[in-house]
């Protein structure tokens, strides 16, 4: 899983960089896709590399990474990312409920996942205003 998440991050980061250099993404869009496509797999690995639910989400990740890139051309694809971020939100909730709200450092990690759909909603709003 370590190699897989590292490879996903690497491919996502390189892909964002190439698209930015090719003029497909602006510099702020590049910073956004860098976080979504480049950093997220490693973050998921660091949060829960032994947890089956997060592992499954990590395995599904490449499909949704492509949806982020596609969303700049086809806005409906950003909704796929919203669905995925909702999956991460559920992962954060499950971790928190199973643990029982103890261990503040783990709660902070859960909150990072729980806040993700808010970012995804703004991404959906942006991709729709971009193309219409």
């Amino acid at each position: 899983m370590k190699i897989y998440s590292l490879a996903s991050s690497f491919i996502g980061g390189i892909m964002s960089f190439v698209l930015w250099q090719a003029g497909y993404l602006s510099q702020v869009e590049f910073l956004l896709t860098l976080s979504m496509c480049g950093f997220l797999p490693v973050i998921l690995f660091l949060i829960g590399n032994t947890e089956p639910f997060i592992e499954k989400l990590l395995l599904m990740y490449p499909i949704f990474m492509l949806s982020v890139i596609g969303a700049f051309e086809f806005p409906w694809m950003s909704v796929l990312w919203l669905v995925y971020s909702f999956g991460l939100f559920l992962a954060g909730c499950f971790r928190m409920v199973q643990r029982g709200f103890f261990y503040i450092e783990e709660t902070v990690l859960d909150m990072a996942l729980i806040y993700l759909p808010l970012g995804a909603v703004w991404f959906v709003v942006y991709s729709f205003t971009l193309n219409y």
């Binding site: 702020v28 869009e29 910073l31 956004l32 976080s35 979504m36 950093f39 997220l40 973050i43 660091l46 949060i47 503040i104 450092e105 783990e106 902070v108 990690l109 909150m111 990072a112 806040y115 993700l116 808010l118 970012g119 995804a120 703004w122 991404f123 709003v125 942006y126 205003t129």
Partner: peptide, 23 residues
């Protein structure tokens, strides 16, 4: 909207993750 999305993918994702890992 773009800047808000960027902030949600850094200040509410990466900062808490780093703080949690530090913990």
């Amino acid at each position: 909207a773009l800047l808000t999305a960027v902030h949600f993918h850094y200040s509410t994702l990466i900062v808490p993750v780093f703080l949690g890992l530090l913990g």
